[in-house]
Amino acid sequence: MSAVLEISGLTVDIPVAAGDLHAVRGIDFSVDKGETLCIVGESGCGKSLTSLSIMGLLPKRAKINADKMQFTGTDLLSLKERELAAIRGNRMAMIFQEPMTSLNPAYTIGNQLMEPYLRHKKSSDKEARERAIYLLERVGITAAASRLSQYPHQLSGGLRQRVMIAMALMCDPELIIADEPTTALDVTIQAQILHLLAELRNEFNSALILITHDLGVVARVADKVAVMYAGKIVEAGTVEEIFNQPLHPYTQGLINCIPVPGKTARGSRLGSIPGIVPTLIGDIKGCSFRNRCGFAHDACDTNDPFHTLNPGRGYRCTLDVPACEANAKELASA
């Protein structure tokens, strides 16, 4: 089966005062129909810029490059803005991190929900309205018809994010990108929204890219996982591979940080691995994780190889698989 989205060698550079900020440094992945790819990694590693570059929504001054960036066989980078706009909101849709500010305060929920449908499907108002009501009900909003005339400020964050999800689904897209859709919400709401997303993905059989901080989420909803660090993918694989055989020390650290009920204090988050990310301005020589890695050695100062074990499975480290597996044991018992 051909992939819905196939990317290789994607880079995003942003010119800043101190030079070029290489926010995304050459990443590869693909997603198929009906599949969920989770991208994990701590704040600032380039997750949002990756998703914005797929949608063609990068800030103007950002420079994008890729060896390959195909959406259902179409080269996204060769499209003109107008052609891209015909795909956005129609065949690919995005759900953002900030439900509180992502809806226009001046227009009703109904107006904003119907907009992409009216634009892309050239439908009548009545059809668009029916579709909006149907989807509001599908995302678990009660009294859907009367919600259409409400304004964003009259809804809670959780409801607004449900509206955003409904909006993304309006045109039945082949690809949905959800960029940390629950980070801004209460813990109880978070679980509901994620559950909803997973359910809808099955129902609509689209491809889903879910960006998250939370490995617990990954374990529940992902088919495939890409772990990002400082603009690169440091490990990729199926969800089983990642959890059963984490090879990169960063992935291993993340998994060790997953809260275990009763053992971990509430509120402690992924990313509690000590140390800080190197600056993304200019080149990084060698492994970008080495200042935080317990297994760093001389080779790590100059080398940064990616090992592909089989298609879709690989890791970025100077150590070989047995050594990495030994590290995992050592970390887990510590």
Partner: peptide, 17 residues
């Protein structure tokens, strides 16, 4: 520069809209 304009762009709306 606001988030809801990004949303509007993500919906594929035309520039005048």
């Amino acid at each position: 520069g606001s988030d809801y304009i990004r949303t509007a762009r993500a919906k594929g709306l035309s520039l005048p809209v």
